[in-house]
Design a binder for these strands. Structure first.
Lengths: 340, 340
DNA sequence: TTGAAAGCGCTAACAA
DNA sequence: TTGTTAGCGCTTTCAA
């Protein structure tokens, strides 16, 4: 495809009348090479337009300095900050990243895992799709002792570090806040309950109710895929409920924002008739009116920690004892929930 | 790092008592290999846990079947649909993609370009950062005849296909619509005017004004980085203007949504006192109240076309005559601009 | 501090 | 239809 030939270390070696081995060493920061030799090599390399050949190097070294990332989707504020954090730490440590979206599909996640495996990534960071049933498709990584880290939407897998927030506690905090605001019939819009994040939030919801001696009513839990459509539909269900709920705690902002829109259309007053709390602190939460009370958690930091933990595992291949890293979250109170 | 040895085609060859070359051919869809031989090979490969070594293959073939993508940011709805489209087409054609965010920084864009160049991508798709002054950092790609395609935020560069919408026309449509709604003093919130997309939208704005014999007033153009902060600040500027503007056309939704919030806080009625049109049809445009009139354009399709055009260039390395591909856009009218 | 030489795993030209 | 063989460009061990 390319017309001009590639410049190799052999060409440099020849031009300088030294050996390729020396050139190879000079191009890196190999200890035990004379300073002026190194300078000569670097200069000549620049002059000749030398370009390091990653493949040859990877092939030889059997390591790629590349980290694979698989996420459900890129298009949320949360995810993009997570990935920015990962890229930052990775680059600082001389790693590249390959990003792959599963688009919430188990099938595509398998394909991504295979591709990244074949690309010989040195490590993998994953947040799983909503319908991923198990972690079998990552077996190949475990077999080859390629470190794998889950974040946010994690799977249980021994020896596999996970980075999460305390979803149970966050769900509790959110629900508790609604209760404190006088809500008694609180709908929970949940995601796929096979996912830790959504199961945890639901458990927190239950616990908060229990503490106030409010019986758990499964008919108030609407489990869906947390899309806009799902939120709209949830609103319709809520409107049909009798007696009408007086609160909503949703497992993400996107769905509940759509839900609020629909409810407002139907003439429901928020927070007057119905207090609302979301999850994620998506920028949208500051746009919807009334502004949405929501749970914030640190995406960038989560990404940075995931990447640095992974790189640690890659380099010190001894098994670290760290199994679960839990980051802080916080309830951000805005108007949508303030009934007092 | 990995403990177990890799299975190579030699191992398979040995196990089957055939030559490595045959194994290599069997593993692909090489024409002229007996069906049962091929079947044998594939079975044995599976049994032995063979894994294709991309590096060796790339090294040998001097091509990577990988496409590089550089974009300013991942976290917009538009960008994530673009990338989904690219991934789709790429995968269908046996290509992988490597995505890199410039985070709107020229410096980081250079770094990304270098990395992708060293990764020997077969082609590159770019939407440039807002402060990128020229395309010199892509020279290496041109020199090696590695096809490069710009989309959305493009640079002028002969021989380089660009995929865009008609920003001039879109800006015209948006402004024209506001004029039709009776606006006379229209503020334009613009991005960096060195970028084609923002320059074009401004030109369209000017043309629409001219057609109605409204003199162009530069003090009504607020050029910024189109972030939320920028929108908020724009609102403050607008509030100080005397006489007060009666319309806003913004080059993206994010900024103008923040701007609307601030204006509403200040008691301005939208669209009554001030009609608003955004750009992008971000999901947020359906959340803000009143819902935002905006320009929609097809992200997924743009991504698909970019990828397929690029792959075409890679494979048929003859220079296609296509220079610019212009996709359709449409004005989506919602309440924020309806003053009649 | 430098050099010689082997080989990472694969592919493709050529031969059979 | 299959096999032989020669590298792709780099790193690294061992020797000097």
């Amino acid at each position: 495809m390319s017309s001009s030939k590639e410049v190799t270390i052999y060409d440099i070696a020849e031009a300088l009348n030294i050996s390729p081995a020396t050139v190879s060493r000079g191009l890196k920061d190999h200890p035990g090479i004379r300073k002026d030799t190194k300078k000569k090599i670097l200069e000549m390399a620049r002059k000749m337009g030398y370009q390091h050949n990653t493949f040859a190097s990877n092939l030889r070294r059997k390591s790629t300095n590349t980290i694979g990332i698989i996420v459900p989707r890129l298009n949320s504020y949360f995810m993009s900050t997570v990935i920015a954090g990962m890229e930052k730490v990775a680059n600082e440590n001389g790693y590249n990243v390959i990003i792959s979206q599963s688009l919430e599909s188990y099938k595509k996640e398998i394909a991504s895992a295979n591709t990244l495996f074949n690309s010989r990534v040195d490590g993998l960071i994953v947040s799983v799709a909503s319908d991923t049933p198990d972690s079998d498709h990552f077996d190949m990584f475990f077999k080859k002792h390629i470190p794998l880290i889950f974040f946010d939407r994690v799977l249980e897998r021994p020896g596999c570090t996970t980075i999460i927030i305390d979803n149970h506690r966050a769900g509790y905090d959110a629900t508790r806040h609604l209760l404190d605001q006088g809500c008694r019939r609180i709908v929970h819009i949940a995601g796929n309950l096979n996912r830790n994040v959504y199961a945890g939030r639901l458990e927190g919801y239950k616990q908060a109710l229990q503490e106030r001696n409010i019986p758990y009513d499964p008919s108030l839990v609407i489990s869906c895929n947390l899309t806009e459509q799902c939120g709209t539909q949830a609103a319709r269900q809520i409107l049909e409920m009798n007696p009408r709920p007086d609160g909503i705690f949703a497992a993400n902002d996107t769905s509940v924002v759509a839900c609020m829109r629909e409810l407002k259309h139907a003439g429901i007053e928020i927070p007057g008739q119905l207090g609302v709390v979301g999850f994620n602190n998506d920028p949208i939460s500051k746009v919807i009116e009334p502004n949405l009370t929501t749970i914030n958690y640190p995406g960038q930091e989560m990404g940075e920690i995931a990447a640095s933990t992974l790189i640690n595992k890659i380099t010190k291949s001894g098994n670290s004892s760290l199994d679960t890293i839990v980051l802080r979250h916080e309830l951000i109170i805005r108007q949508s929930s303030l009934r007092k």
